[in-house]
Simulated scan of single mutants.
Amino acid sequence: MNIDRRRLLTGMAGTALLGLPKPTLAATTASIGDFQVDSVSDGNLVLPGAMFFEGRPVAEVDKILAPLNMSKTQVEPPCNVTLVRHEGRVILFDAGSGDGFMPTAGTLVDSLDAIGIAPDDVTHVVFTHGHPDHLWGVLDDFDDPVFTEAEHMIGQVEWDYWTDPNTVNTIGDTRASFAVGAARRLDAVADRMTFFKDGAEVLPGIMAHATFGHTPGHMSFEVRSGSDALLIGGDAIGNHHIAFARPKWASGSDQDPDLAAITRARLLDMLSHDKTPLLGFHLPDGGIGRVEKRGDEYQFVSEEIQ
């Protein structure tokens, strides 16, 4: 797999602390047979470390984070949106945050422009799930659809969950705005939405895999050309630290932490055994790498530029 990384300066180093984007990767490009896969930046999130580390053994957390030079108080995961070009199709997996979620995110349209893609070039938008950093970018700041020429596609389970009027009452106070925002945006693009189920070939060479837990209907996608493949993992493996070192630990970032942990452990075992590359939405260096098993732990190893 050939990798090329291009950097786009979306702000000055360190300005994320001031609520501004920091320098991010515009794109990381890989070839999977006759598929061209680009990881394009939507900026980054700024999250409290407690979401990942609270209640965990301090010594174990310190041991995991020390080699990564990470803070326990604040984490700033990148947002890597996948763009696939194949047989005339221009396919986005997720739509980023838009301008309504966090000031450090929402750079997708600029990153696409940096690689010569305009919103109306996109033929399909395929969603892993309905969280704000994956869905809210479907509408612009005038509440008009961004990807005007695209068919939008989402798993049936995920659609049913976010469009259920009762979800806002059951999701919990901290995520109630997620439910309101998702319902509004999905309603706005309902007339261009189609649905799929686990195991479906959503587009030629692209298969949906149910990876439930992070959300009730979260989907990942296998891009395959002959013996060459890559898994677009969304948030099923949501970070490169705790998720790899202690995949069975429940995470506050998941809506069903126990189910998500089972899913995560299964995926890591499969990816390490099959040596299939992973493109993760919140993984570093453009999100493309391999999963290596080391004893009872796993490690994310970014693909080298070739």
Rank of each mutant, 00 (worst) to 15 (best):
T128H: 12
T163M: 14
W159N: 11
N239T: 04
W136K: 04
H124D: 15
P132D: 01
G181V: 10
V180I: 15
A229C: 11
V157P: 02
P132Q: 00
D133M: 14
E151H: 02
G217R: 10
H209P: 00
V122K: 07
W159A: 13
M193C: 00
R175C: 02
G217T: 03
T170R: 15
S227F: 13
A236M: 12
A190V: 07
D143C: 09
D164N: 15
A188I: 05
L139K: 10
D120N: 15
I154C: 07
I237Q: 06
H131A: 11
V146R: 14
A183H: 11
V189Q: 08
G234R: 00
G226K: 04
A188D: 05
A229T: 02
F221I: 06
G213T: 03
F147N: 02
G137C: 07
T194S: 14
D143Y: 09
G213L: 04
N239S: 10
S220W: 00
S225A: 14
P165D: 08
F142Q: 15
D160T: 03
H129C: 12
P119Y: 13
M219G: 02
D235E: 11
S177T: 08
P119L: 13
H241R: 05
H152D: 04
T194H: 04
D120S: 13
N239Q: 08
G205W: 00
A236I: 10
D133N: 14
T174F: 09
A229W: 02
F127T: 00
F147T: 02
G205E: 11
P145N: 00
D140V: 00
L230M: 10
M219P: 05
V202T: 01
D140N: 06
G130C: 12
D120T: 12
F221V: 00
H209W: 06
D173T: 13
H218T: 10
I237L: 10
H134K: 05
R175G: 06
G181M: 09
G181A: 11
D144K: 12
D235V: 10
H241M: 05
I171E: 02
T167Y: 08
Y161T: 09
A150N: 13
R184N: 04
S220N: 03
T211K: 03
L186H: 01
E158N: 01
I206M: 14
V126H: 09
G217W: 02
A150V: 07
M207G: 01
L139F: 03
W162D: 09
F212N: 14
H209R: 15
D164V: 01
D143I: 03
L186A: 04
G155K: 00
V126P: 05
F147L: 05
G234S: 05
T163W: 01
F147K: 06
A188Q: 06
